[in-house]
Design a protein around this nucleic acid. Structure first.
Lengths: 153, 153
DNA sequence: TATTGTTATACTCTATAACTATA
DNA sequence: TATAGTTATAGAGTATAACAATA
């Protein structure tokens, strides 16, 4: 019943599982940080994304923050109510609504910047700066890879 | 409001977000496969883990499959009911219960092996075999890293 | 007709605490 | 006292479909 641990199918060699496990390890200290400020992981991702890219439409936020549109609708409503961001109809295409971070939202990010940098620095020390850079490069390439495209011939 | 995209804080350079995005990209084809067989991602992870390691206790499964114990309890009950695995009290420590994959559970894994290998192969072709190996190595190291340990002095 | 976003629904997972049984 | 697992509960996310408004 137990498989040969040397075979390629082992879970540590499964990209989806390996990515999930690594993320769980890394998220630990960040979870602690976020739980203290009462904001959820998902809201934090939305805030980060909108702060980074500037005003943007919801489909783009959903992609960047890895959330489904129905989930995002609910999250944005709550965040707008909490004054972290605003939604305005796009003047050019009125189907769209443009999400903009508020001063309070940016303040929330700024107030976590130093703690966040500290966690990252600590991680870098334990794991190794060069490995971390290499890993981030590989992850970006993987994210950008079009897995449905035809193979090179 | 928009941050300088060159600064270190960009979301693509945030390990938690980068790991999540990469996972979403990779999971696409696997999600399709699993949705066709009517088993959830979480149940699939449990099955993979128990198949790989052989009979094991629940706390170990929870760690390996990245699930909380209360979630695992519910999932295992459903899977046991579906005949995919069995739970038996440990004879040495009766607080523990040992989970063992059933023939039907192993069959489920086996029946997906070729499709799963196909998806992985395709991914490897698009992304590059060497990069994939390097990425898996780095992920394993990260997962095994003890982020709470004291820094080397 | 297709796209953007919202609403509705059923299911599932999270996160925490309280609990039982065992060590 | 501590540990393994279960139960309970509130909150949140997923996944899908149906829908309204707009293009």
């Amino acid at each position: 019943m137990t498989n040969d641990p040397s075979k390629l199918a082992q879970t540590a060699r499964s990209l989806p599982i390996a990515l999930l496990r690594a993320r769980e390890t890394v998220m630990g200290p960040f979870r602690e940080m976020l739980s203290q400020s009462g904001i959820s992981e998902q809201k934090w991702r939305v805030l980060r994304v909108v702060s980074e890219s500037g005003p943007m439409e919801q489909t783009a936020i959903a992609t960047a923050a890895c959330l489904m549109l129905p989930s995002l609708t609910r999250i944005l409503s709550a965040m707008e109510k909490d004054g972290l961001l605003t939604r305005q109809p796009d003047t050019q295409d009125r189907r769209k609504s443009i999400v903009t971070i508020s001063a309070a939202g940016q303040d929330l990010i700024d107030s976590h910047a130093s703690r966040s940098a500290e966690i990252t620095k600590r991680l870098q020390e334990r794991y190794g700066t060069e490995k971390m850079i290499k890993l981030l490069d590989l992850l970006e390439e993987l994210t950008d890879a079009d897995l449905t495209a035809a193979p090179k011939t």
